[in-house]
Design a protein around this nucleic acid. Structure first.
Lengths: 194, 194
DNA sequence: TCTCCTGATGGCAGTTACTGACATGGTCAA
DNA sequence: TTGACCATGTCAGTAACTGCCATCAGGAGA
């Protein structure tokens, strides 16, 4: 028998999600979170660099999954399509966790401190995608723009996916957003690409 | 003669920029900043909600200037062009402060805590631009995408402007980035818009 | 079986960001 | 001259975060 309950990180994360939802971020102390998880404040700070980070554990693997998909995209893909291939690779993952994603997004949306952390994680993702695109021979500026435009598409598509009463896939919403970005950039009366 | 030295906010901001540059963000306390500005910690927190905010004072007026320019853009402009008209409206402002902008950007780039704050300010700007575009009759999703794509252009253009040894204007770099985004979205062999 | 080492956890003291309540004292209008 | 004003100061308190050392079950080796 193990000396300690397993999965301390998971318990802390779960406790934090609950408490932030119940009382709000500012009104829950790290001690509260640790206590609900059956641990102490000190242990919390061994797993997470700060109070915000508790909702963002595992984002590294997430980035890796996306970057791998960018690398694996067909050579002929445009930079934007390669970036989107990365985001589409998360569709199955999210499909299994729609309810959880909704809760988590609601908590984050309600707390600017958490939004800040989410934004910097997304920019780290953008930087990783930019690097992956550069590996593919895309120029630095084009890679940045494709990565950031891809992120804009992801943000809009993800939001619509969360709200979608019909439960259509993330891929569906990403592609819709992609078409819309094209229209917005090129203009309504533009000739479409060959 | 005034009872107190004038421009407390400016002195605090200047002191903070200096100290963050000299010792780094983490190693300068709010008390340090206040002392260099000839004030106390308590007064610092009357002007700024937290330690990070000291580098972001006045961002409201900044947003207002951009949103006004978006509103003033020609009716016929595409959503993206209207958003970019907003960003171009800052070109003269920045032209006068290139050296300051470089210092400030260097300090922010060196400190993730400050990047987080900058990102959330930029997202607030995106939200304001989105609202302004919706006022113009642009659909919600298109407005979001145009605002975020505009921001991507701004970020890339601004970075190039900072580094530009030839000191070309921000407008120049924004337009270059805009062209590049179009290429990235539509694809290299695409037909250009009429 | 004994022993030693490892590794997750706890305890504790210290620093600093931030807040609320109240005090101070030039300045300026009446 | 006076009194209200208001930017600033003082002080005490909470909570985020850190460094250092203690604890102690379990596994490896003797």
């Amino acid at each position: 028998m193990a000396r300690w309950e397993p999965n301390a990180i998971g318990r802390l994360t779960e406790a934090a999600m609950q408490l932030f939802g119940e009382r709000g971020y500012a009104k829950t102390t790290v001690e509260d979170i640790a206590a609900r998880a059956g641990l102490t404040e000190r242990t919390f700070f061994r797993y997470f660099t700060d109070k915000r980070e508790v909702l963002f554990a595992g984002s590294d693997q997430f980035v890796k999954q996306i970057v791998d998909a960018v690398r694996a995209a067909p050579k002929a893909s445009t930079p934007l399509d390669a970036a989107l291939a990365g985001h589409e690779a998360t569709s199955d993952f999210f499909a299994q966790r729609r309810a959880f994603a909704r809760k988590r997004s609601a908590v984050i949306a309600a707390h600017p401190e958490l939004q800040e952390r989410e934004l910097i994680k997304l920019m780290a993702l953008a930087a990783a995608i930019t690097a992956a695109l550069e590996e593919r021979g895309v120029s630095s500026a084009a890679a940045s723009l494709a990565a950031e435009a891809g992120l804009a598409i992801f943000r809009v598509g993800f939001e619509h996916w969360l709200k979608d009463a019909k439960n259509r896939s993330l891929v569906f919403h990403l592609r819709a957003a992609r078409r819309q970005l094209e229209a917005v950039v090129v203009g309504p009366r533009a000739t479409r690409r060959a």
